[in-house]
Simulated scan of single mutants.
Amino acid sequence: MILINLLPHREAAKKRRKEAFQVTMVMAALIGAAIAGGVYWWFQNQIENQQARNAFLTREIKQLDEQIKEIATIESEIAALRARQKAVEDLQADRNLPVHLLTELVAQMPDGIYITSVKQVDQTVEMHGMAQSQERVSELLRNISGNTPWFAKPELLEIVAANATLSPKDVRRVASFKMRFRLMRASDLKKEADAAEKAEKAEKAKLPKGNANGK
């Protein structure tokens, strides 16, 4: 009978398996380290790219802020120019206001009234006068309110009974009054006319076609 000792062979096989396992573990560790390094590098690259984009956006935002400031400056300059232009136009228009004031006062003044003083501040006119009766003052208010576009918002501030001395022997009982109204510029009249025209067109647009044509 032949006996074969297998113990050294088994030990050698076990040793080889152990060494193979260790090699596998080392390789797995190296591969894991390489994957981790690759992932870290990828994330680091993404972070650097994002930081570069953020820096680019920051520079662009600063440039836009400067442009916005320039635009705001330009807009303020344009607004100032428009304000100066309007002031010049108002001054040119106001040169004719005293003419319209005197012309319309003569046209709208009823008999039995005479003016003692007229004071104009900007577009507000304050007028003092004497009238034969309160009815004459009421007639003047109606004329100013409805007969001329150059006067607006008339207000009777005061009316009292007074004596008017025409001569040493002629003293008459009169109504002393004080009123205030607004003197309109030509630009104001144009705005009112445009607004009235728009309102009229809008009203006609609401009506049926038959009614708009008068049928």
Rank of each mutant, 00 (worst) to 15 (best):
D194K: 13
G38H: 02
L3Y: 09
E75K: 13
T103D: 08
L6D: 10
T73Y: 09
V99Q: 00
G210N: 15
A34P: 00
E89S: 12
L166P: 00
V26W: 01
R180E: 14
V121C: 04
G37M: 11
D111M: 10
K215D: 14
R95G: 08
E197Q: 14
K209W: 05
Q108D: 04
A164I: 02
Q50V: 11
K86N: 11
A107C: 01
V118L: 15
A87G: 09
N49G: 13
E70P: 00
G210Q: 14
A193H: 09
I31D: 00
A33P: 00
F56T: 11
A28T: 02
A83G: 06
T124V: 15
Y40F: 12
W150D: 08
T24W: 04
N5L: 07
L207C: 04
E60I: 05
I47Q: 12
A20P: 01
V23N: 03
K169M: 08
M25E: 11
K15W: 11
Q120N: 06
T103K: 11
F56I: 07
A20R: 07
H100I: 05
V99R: 04
E60P: 03
A199M: 10
A12C: 10
V121S: 12
E158M: 10
L81A: 13
A93E: 15
P149V: 14
T116A: 07
Q108C: 10
Q132A: 12
P149G: 13
G32E: 02
E192M: 15
R16E: 12
N143Y: 03
L3R: 08
A193V: 09
I144V: 14
T148N: 09
E75D: 11
M1K: 05
N96C: 02
L91E: 13
N45S: 15
